[in-house]
């Protein structure tokens, strides 16, 4: 079974990804061919996986936002 978050290059439809972002600035890689979950608007894409990873690595890190995180469901 292949994971939709890993690009294997074999299937052209699976090469495209999105970058999603939630209200507290956390990012998620997302396969472009799947519906996006609620609360996660698109910040970039569709784009190649490497472009998405590069985009995220250059965003300001949310890791100091210690007070604003909502309780996970």
């Amino acid at each position: 079974m292949t994971n939709p978050f890993d690009s294997d290059g074999a299937d052209p439809a699976r090469k495209a990804f999105l970058v999603l972002v939630n209200t507290i600035g956390q990012h998620s890689l997302w396969p472009a061919h799947l519906e996006t979950p609620a609360g996660w608007p698109v910040a970039l894409g569709p784009a190649r996986r490497a472009e998405c990873m590069d985009f995220i690595s250059r965003r300001p890190s949310p890791h100091r936002l210690t007070t604003a995180l909502p309780a996970a469901a």
């Binding site: 990012h27 890689l29 996660w40 990873m53 909502p70 996970a72």
Partner: peptide, 27 residues
């Protein structure tokens, strides 16, 4: 869930991903 990988937002974003079945905006 952990916050993610310390100072590695891109590695965090590929392992801690948007959750289609949880509350909006959760991972």
């Amino acid at each position: 869930l952990a916050r993610g990988y310390h100072d590695r937002p891109e590695l965090t974003a590929e392992r801690f991903v948007a959750d289609p079945y949880g509350a909006p905006g959760t991972r």
